[in-house]
Simulated scan of single mutants.
Amino acid sequence: MKQYRAYCFDLDGTIYKGTEVIEAAAQTIYELQKRGIEPYYITNNASVNREDVENKLAKMGIVAKRERIYTTAVASALYCAEYHASSHIYLYGEEGLRKAFAEQNLRVVGPEEADVAVVGINRESTYESLSEVMNVIRNGATFIATNSDKIIPTATGFGVGNGSFIRLLAHATGIEPLYIGKPESTMLELVRESGGYAKDEMVMIGDNYDTDILCGIQYEIDTIHVAGGVHTQAQIQQREKQPTYFVENLTELL
């Protein structure tokens, strides 16, 4: 297998499942670090920020550099800091999203003042709260979605992903959002810019074809699908575009 300078790992389903680390992933990251290669961590989870991910990985025995962690909360805040710096932003999500926007000193407001609505996973969603964000969008706010994941891995199987809530809101409003997370390339572009990499020096690694693998394919970098997550190798082999590599566990990268 080709060696790379920038190994971009998905988190949920690739490095851990829920609160349980995948031992092959931890071993692989440790070996890469011994070789002087510090990985990147690319997650569609908008409920967490860099500090949250750093702390979670540390509890699993993985030492991650904070500046190499990209969540969709962080990426959405960086996007809005560049393109909506003077906007009034309504956030629908969890604490990680709010922290990321606070770190960028963006103007976060209530539903009546908003001209931008950023929607991330909210596991306390209710009929009333979804109706509120729907009306913010219907009233003209720019609709931004942190990611389009239909489902997300959990320790016991899968949970409803942010993308499923987004489809509900898009159907109710008739408005399609701008997506930030995988398979869009925003986070990979942030990685490339941060390290000055060429695309042939980067690889995207994950278990989900529709997010991780398509993200790498569309960004025109190599991809590695790891078994045991959202999609099986047999399912992916039915797709038109294939990953660069399939592995049963991440130690095969070594």
Rank of each mutant, 00 (worst) to 15 (best):
T19L: 10
T19A: 12
T19E: 13
T19H: 14
E20P: 01
V21M: 09
V21A: 15
E23V: 14
E23L: 12
E23R: 13
A24Q: 14
A24R: 08
A24I: 00
Q27A: 13
Q27R: 14
T28E: 00
T28W: 00
Y30A: 14
E31P: 04
L32E: 02
Q33M: 04
Q33R: 13
K34N: 14
K34A: 10
K34D: 03
G36S: 04
Y40R: 02
Y40T: 02
Y41I: 03
I42H: 00
I42L: 09
I42Q: 01
N44C: 05
N45R: 01
A46W: 03
S47Y: 02
S47R: 03
V48P: 04
N49G: 13
N49V: 04
E51M: 13
E51I: 11
E54P: 05
N55E: 15
N55M: 12
K56C: 07
K56I: 11
K56S: 08
L57M: 14
K59C: 07
K59D: 12
K59S: 10
M60D: 08
G61M: 06
V63R: 12
K65G: 04
K65D: 13
R66D: 00
E67N: 12
R68E: 05
R68H: 13
Y70T: 03
T71I: 02
T72M: 02
A73W: 02
V74R: 04
V74C: 02
A75F: 02
S76M: 03
L78W: 10
L78Y: 13
Y79N: 07
Y79S: 04
A81K: 15
A81L: 15
E82G: 09
H84C: 15
H84W: 14
S87V: 10
I89F: 09
I89W: 10
I89D: 10
Y90N: 05
Y90Q: 03
L91N: 09
L91W: 08
G93N: 08
E94N: 09
E95F: 02
E95A: 13
E95H: 11
G96A: 08
G96H: 03
L97A: 04
L97N: 08
R98H: 15
R98D: 13
R98E: 15
K99H: 14
K99W: 09
A100V: 07
A100R: 03
F101P: 08
F101H: 07
A102G: 09
A102D: 15
E103H: 10
Q104L: 07
L106P: 10
R107S: 12
G110A: 10
E112S: 10
E113V: 08
E113Q: 13
E113C: 00
A114Y: 11
D115Y: 08
V118G: 01
V119A: 01
G120T: 03
N122I: 08
R123A: 06
E124H: 14
T126S: 15
T126A: 04
Y127S: 01
Y127V: 07
Y127P: 02
E128T: 06
E128D: 14
E128Y: 05
S129A: 06
L130K: 00
E132H: 00
E132R: 01
M134L: 10
M134A: 11
M134H: 00
N135Q: 14
N135P: 00
V136P: 08
R138E: 09
R138C: 07
N139A: 11
G140P: 11
A141M: 09
A141P: 09
T142I: 13
F143W: 01
F143T: 07
A145E: 05
T146Q: 01
N147F: 00
N147H: 11
S148Q: 06
K150H: 09
K150W: 00
